[in-house]
Design a protein around this nucleic acid. Structure first.
Length: 700
DNA sequence: CATAGCCGCCTTTTT
DNA sequence: GGCGGCTATG
């Protein structure tokens, strides 16, 4: 085994074989390489690959780590996957002990949305006062903290908590009835399985004698507990992460997991990797300057190892179209100079911003790919076919069943379904069982009975063919359920292509899996998404959110939309909550540190948001990047505002008056001379960041 | 029962 | 601007 590529501190991390190990690693320090080499060196020293478990943040990262480990000459067999995949597998293996059925469906956001709506409806609550999305969020937070519905109900004392508890209970009932688990359940149920069944815990702990976790700063409490249980019999846990790159707090990520690692494992060895092998000093210096503005952080250096390069540029543009066009043009020029398109990426804060960029890339004939998984798996035709397949292994999955019972149209309408549902409720049987029993539903006439019988026999026929591989089955179902015919009639060739892509993927799964099972395929596929589909081999420019950029690196990076409200995002409530502001700053930090050589940061002076052209304010983060960037000359013709008073300074708490927003109180004042920003909470309830020189605020 | 068209609702980030 | 759900119509 060759370790030439490692620095002394990396080598120390790799060779420390026993006991807890914490690798605090800055961006570009090769922390993923540390994990990969550690896997290889463990195998090299005689540990069976079978006894190693590595956890990555995305499936894509897992795939890459597998490849790299093989490239180092290790034999396959190490378990490398995400927490969610590992938990899904564990729950299926030990379904009996976990008190669930092994044929469970995994519900994604869209399925969850349907369930929570049903739950709120069942509680006879108004969706305006109890927005389903909010309720789901609250439930997810509870699940991440491993608080189940009963416990929460028991402790609920105020009206809101009690109502939420009721919704939570109903929601969970619906999932149970459908034999379904949501993403959070995968973690929560695994955690309680390991903690309540010592024999299962011991088995797994002995199977995985070495646990390695990448991106540990973004683990949540449930994942922490799973990890802790997994190593309970040996303590061989190695984690790597960077607190400055923690960007999933909103999803329950708990930065304390990494900060408290040394308390949890007092004999832990800590290795710090501060050298950066990725970016030029020019890029690192602005990254450093930005992240230094975060108050709640441990000091950490970014030590450059490569020679200076080009300065980072900060470009103003008139509007988002000009911004996109200019970037497309620059990329064209790079392409003319034979720069590989796969070395270029554009990052933005929200998915909606990809459209303008896409249009510009099409105009300039630049091949691109949008790195976002919702795309593929949320397409109607894909969801439809997957719903058919889900029904075959889990007929209780009513969400899937309702999706396809009349898709394509087979004359089973709302009235019929209501009658079946009543029958199911009165007999206390599942919807699918009621369908099978349709002949005995008195309120149904013969025509709908016959139609239901055809549907049921179709499903039962498919169910007989479960053992012949996922690919052939998917093909057969697509052809015989009528979907193919209806797509052909509609001449929807893209939809057909998409389905073919899914079928190809299923064949690929059959090929790569020792014992291909539909249930396994479905449980894994639900956990695939966004970054997983990104393919560098395609030779295209990559467009993605800053979140999706985590863990990646590119020679040339463009970050767009550095504007107040966008980055930091308005929904993150930054003026009320400093923690959230710091997370937004880390998101930007992650983006900056993806760049190896060239980085351009831009903002638009006008941006169309929800169809409205709005004047923007440059992001406060740009000002934090400091004096080395002079504020670009702004063309006064853009402003139909009259010139107003220049900053004389505002005090926090001061009462001010605005022409259209009315009275408000100053929450914050960022004094940067001419471009000073004042943050005002208006009596209307909204909080706005305003540029003093345009806001025309008067002191009351 | 199917379809088209309209209205109202939401719109950060994602395993 | 986009989608889901509802309604009116065939």
């Amino acid at each position: 085994m060759q370790y030439d590529q490692l620095t002394p501190s990396q080598r120390k991390a790799v060779f420390h074989h026993e006991g807890p190990l914490l690798v605090i690693a800055g961006p570009g320090s090769g922390k993923t390489r540390v994990i990969t080499y550690r896997i290889a060196s463990l195998i090299d020293s005689g540990i069976a690959p079978y006894n190693i478990c590595a956890i990555t943040f995305t499936n894509k990262a897992a795939e890459e780590m597998r490849q790299r480990a093989y490239a180092l000459g290790t034999s396959p067999g190490a378990h490398i996957s995400t927490f969610h995949s590992l938990c899904a597998r564990t729950l299926r293996t030990y379904a009996r002990q976990a008190d669930i059925s092994d044929s469970f469906s995994v519900y994604d956001a869209a399925d969850q949305a349907r369930c929570i709506k049903q739950a709120v409806k069942l509680c006879e609550l108004d969706t305006t006062n109890f927005p389903p999305a909010r309720m789901l969020d609250a439930i997810s937070t509870l699940k991440n903290k491993l608080i189940d519905a009963e416990t929460f109900k028991h402790d609920a004392d105020d009206f809101f908590s009690k109502t939420l508890a009721e919704i939570y209970g109903r929601y969970q009932n619906i999932l149970n009835e459908n034999n379904a688990l949501d993403f959070d359940d995968l973690l929560m149920k695994t955690s309680s399985l390991l903690e309540n069944c010592p024999d299962v815990c011991e088995k797994l702990s002995n199977r995985f004698k070495f646990l390695l976790i990448d991106e540990y700063q973004d683990t949540n409490h449930a994942q922490y507990r799973v990890a802790k249980a997994l190593v309970s019999h040996h303590g061989n846990i190695c984690v790597t992460g960077d607190p400055d790159q923690s960007i999933y707090r909103w999803r329950g990520a708990d930065i304390r997991n990494i900060l408290d690692f040394e308390n949890d494992w007092p004999d832990a060895v800590v290795v710090k990797l501060e050298e950066n092998f990725r970016s030029t000093p020019n890029i690192l210096s602005i990254a450093d300057q930005l992240i230094a503005c975060n108050q709640s952080r441990k000091q950490k250096k970014l030590v450059p190892t490569i020679p200076p390069g080009k300065d980072v540029s900060i470009e103003p543009f008139e509007d988002e179209r000009h911004e996109a066009d200019a970037i497309a043009q620059q990329i064209s020029q790079l392409a003319d100079r034979k720069v590989a398109l796969s070395s270029i990426a554009v990052f933005y804060r929200v998915n909606a911003m990809s459209r303008t960029l896409e249009e510009a890339f099409i105009r300039h004939k630049i091949p691109y790919q949008i790195v976002r998984g919702v795309e593929f798996y949320s397409r109607k035709e894909i969801r439809d076919l997957l719903a058919y397949l889900k029904i075959l292994v889990n007929p209780d999955d009513e969400i899937a069943l309702m999706r396809i019972i009349n898709t394509p149209a087979r004359g089973i309408g709302k009235t019929t379904l209501n009658k079946v549902r009543n029958h199911a409720a009165s007999r206390n049987i599942t919807f699918y069982k009621a369908l099978k029993d349709a002949a005995n539903i008195k309120s149904l006439s013969n025509a709908p009975k016959a139609k239901i019988a055809v549907f049921v026999s179709l499903i039962e026929q498919f169910q007989k063919e479960l053992s012949g591989g996922v690919g052939p089955l998917a093909e057969r179902v697509f052809c015989d359920c009528g979907l193919e015919k209806s797509l052909k009639t509609a001449e929807d060739s893209t939809a057909i292509e998409n389905v073919n892509e899914l079928i190809n993927a299923a064949h690929e799964y059959d090929k790569q899996t020792e014992n291909p099972l539909l249930v396994d395929y479905l449980q894994q596929i639900s956990l695939f998404s966004d970054v997983d589909a990104y393919d560098t081999a395609k030779g295209t420019v990559a467009l993605m959110t800053l979140h999706a950029a985590k863990g990646l690196e590119f020679e040339n990076v463009f970050i767009v939309g550095l504007e107040e409200g966008l980055l930091p995002h308005e929904r993150s409530n930054v003026d009320e909550d400093n923690e959230q502001l710091e997370e937004e700053r880390r998101i930007f930090f992650v983006g900056i540190t993806r760049a190896k050589t060239n980085l351009q940061i831009s903002y638009a002076q006008y941006r169309t948001i929800r169809g409205q052209l709005l004047r923007t304010i440059p992001s406060r983060f740009l000002f934090e990047l400091g004096a080395q960037f002079s504020e670009p000359a702004e063309e006064s013709r853009h402003y139909d505002y009259g010139t107003s008073q220049v900053a004389s300074g505002f005090k926090i708490g001061q009462l001010v008056q605005h022409n259209s927003f009315g009275l408000g109180r100053v929450k914050n004042f960022v004094d940067v001379g001419e471009n000073s920003i004042v943050v005002v909470k208006f009596n209307t309830g909204q909080t706005k960041s305003l540029m003093v020189k345009y806001a025309n605020l008067s002191i009351v």
